[in-house]
């Protein structure tokens, strides 16, 4: 089976599986359950109707999505940047590790949403607070992975580079950093889904736009179609994010693929 045939088979399977799910959903809500749960058609209709044209609340769907995405990206990249620097430093220097790891070990297991009350008290639940929460979600995973990546660099690479005359700085930038990239990317991927979950939680607590707000507003208005539309959008955007992520990773970690 060549690659093209394989792709077509995969595509057919995906279409069949999604269609089957939609049909079962459609049939399932015909009876008694239909009073609690809308069918797939109204949900899809609402999704496309509000995407650019109609509004949910005072904004179109695409604007809601952008609000959530911008919050995620701001916190995500901030957390990733700090996490990579801190994690690599912890893996590289015993002293930095000794200073930061006890603190980090305590902060890491706290789920980001546990900070919601305190961030409301400190900074109110405006944009700053949401970005702060997403930052925490991203920062912890990235730090942890960068740290273990830098700690587990194959000593043979370091030895080879040292033999070729590399100084400490050169070892850090030409060996430790690139050798940690796969591990950092694994952290970035987990961090991305964690951020996506956190932005929804933050928006559900307080906001006037965004995907989390759509669901909560739907609940408050008893609008099941709106809730399901919000959930559909969350799923689709989450899927797109991880697809884009994998493309970027494949680009940057080309060397890590085995075979030719």
């Amino acid at each position: 089976m060549n690659k093209k045939q394989k792709n077509i088979t995969e595509l057919i399977c995906a279409v069949v599986s999604i269609l089957t799910f939609l049909i079962l959903w459609h049939i399932g809500v015909k009876g008694e359950l239909g009073r609690l749960m809308p069918g797939p058609l109204p949900v899809i209709r609402m999704f496309f109707a509000t995407l650019f044209g109609g509004t949910i609340g005072s904004r179109t769907m695409i604007i809601h999505i952008l609000y959530s995405l911008i919050r995620v990206m701001a916190g995500y990249f901030l957390g990733a940047a700090v996490g990579v620097v801190l994690g690599l430093s912890m893996g590289w220097s015993r002293l930095v590790e000794a200073v930061f790891s006890p603190l980090f070990r305590i902060i890491r297991p706290i789920p980001p949403i546990a900070w919601i009350p305190i961030s409301i008290i400190w900074i109110g639940l405006g944009e700053d607070a949401k970005i702060f929460l997403i930052f925490l979600a991203s920062f912890c995973y990235v730090t942890l992975n960068a740290w273990s990546g830098a700690k587990n660099v194959d000593p043979d690479y370091l030895r080879a580079a040292r033999m070729l005359g590399a100084g400490k700085r050169q070892l850090l930038f030409t060996i430790v950093l690139p050798a940690s990239i796969p591990s950092i990317f694994a952290g970035l991927q987990v961090a991305l889904s964690s951020c996506w979950a956190t932005v929804l939680a933050a928006e559900m607590v307080r906001s006037s736009e965004g995907l989390g707000w759509i669901i909560i507003a739907g609940m408050n208005n008893n609008d099941m179609v709106q809730i399901m539309t919000g959930i559909l959008a969350i799923g689709l955007v989450g899927m797109l994010l991880s697809m884009i992520f994998r493309k970027v990773e494949a680009r940057l970690c080309q060397w890590n693929k085995s075979g030719s």
Partner: peptide, 30 residues
């Protein structure tokens, strides 16, 4: 650090994130 000493040891010590060409150039980059 000062003398040009090169070292080849048992097992693979090429950097997996560099291409063959970049690996050969590694010591020169350093």
């Amino acid at each position: 650090k000062k003398d040009h000493i090169a070292y080849i040891f048992q097992g693979n010590s090429t950097m997996p994130w560099l291409t063959v060409e970049q690996n050969v150039a590694f010591g020169l980059d350093i």
